[in-house]
Write a protein that binds this DNA or RNA. Structure first.
Lengths: 150, 150
DNA sequence: TTTATCGAGTCTCTTAAGGGAACTCAAATG
DNA sequence: CATTTGAGTTCCCTTAAGAGACTCGATAAA
């Protein structure tokens, strides 16, 4: 469990970790992304403690990453990705790609992604938003930005 | 703190989280990536407990993401990214991009990335490895792969 | 009207990990 | 021989995770 708050750091990675860095959270987002939107569904799929799931869902809603939508006439709701949350799925796709490459073993990837645009089974590649060329660790220089710590 | 092991799940996201899902780990990788390679440097930069840092570093070395390289004639070493670890930096860059977009506030991004190939300050975009078009949450269908659970 | 059902939490207790800070180790330096 | 140094290790306390029983409120069934 993490008791230190990263949100104060002048670092977007740390701030992002404050939103999604708790280990269950990415898996909760994955479940919502694939259509498991109700508390019991997520709880059953992940085998997570009900108390912890409640806490994580409250946190993700509080961060604006998930939203509650009522269904049924009883006080019941489902959880859905907001725009903010949908953009976090990029992270899940990169995790999946790295996991497929380094951790899948002989069995191969558990999930395949078919890209709508080309109809092919494919994975994500990180490209420069400006020129479209590959953009990985060794392709960039880091510079202080306007939001850097002083 | 996490007591459940995700490595058993037939899911590359869960397996990746078993490697890097503990909240301090991405920040440790970030520090090593930017050149803070020694125990004391990382400890001072992150303000992390020495015990926890030791545990995390051992875990990351055990997972083949970091490696120890001796320096000095004393029994001292630095931590460096392996190829496996270098490819994990993709994750940090996507986290940074999302954090810049949603969490930087008026101050703006704390760190800028200058892409070597085009010389511009830019960010990463997720593109299909096959056709090069954008590939985000809404652009893919998920299918069971060879490594899917039965 | 009363009872039962249901999904989504809440509560209690136990166990495990995080965090602080002092301490230890081993190899060099003075 | 004593000191310094960087990298852990140990101890103790606090906090959170996890298990599972329980509660709640609104509907459905009897």
């Amino acid at each position: 469990m993490q008791r230190t708050n990263f949100g104060e750091m002048a670092c977007s990675i740390a701030r992002t970790l404050d939103v999604i860095g708790e280990p269950w959270s990415p898996l909760i987002l994955r479940d919502v992304w694939v259509g498991l939107t109700r508390f019991e569904q997520i709880q059953a799929d992940l085998g997570i403690s009900r108390k912890v799931l409640t806490e994580r869902l409250n946190h993700l809603v509080g961060q604006g990453v998930l939203e509650r939508r009522p269904y049924d006439q009883r006080p019941r709701h489902e959880y859905h990705l907001t725009q903010k949350g949908t953009e976090l799925v990029d992270l899940l796709m990169v995790m999946a790609g790295w996991g497929d490459r380094w951790l899948a073993g002989e069995a191969g990837p558990p999930v395949l992604y078919r890209h709508h645009a080309c109809g092919e089974i494919s994975g994500v590649d990180l490209r420069c938003a400006h020129c479209g060329e590959p953009m990985h660790a060794g392709d960039v220089d880091l510079l202080p930005g306007p939001g850097a710590a002083v």
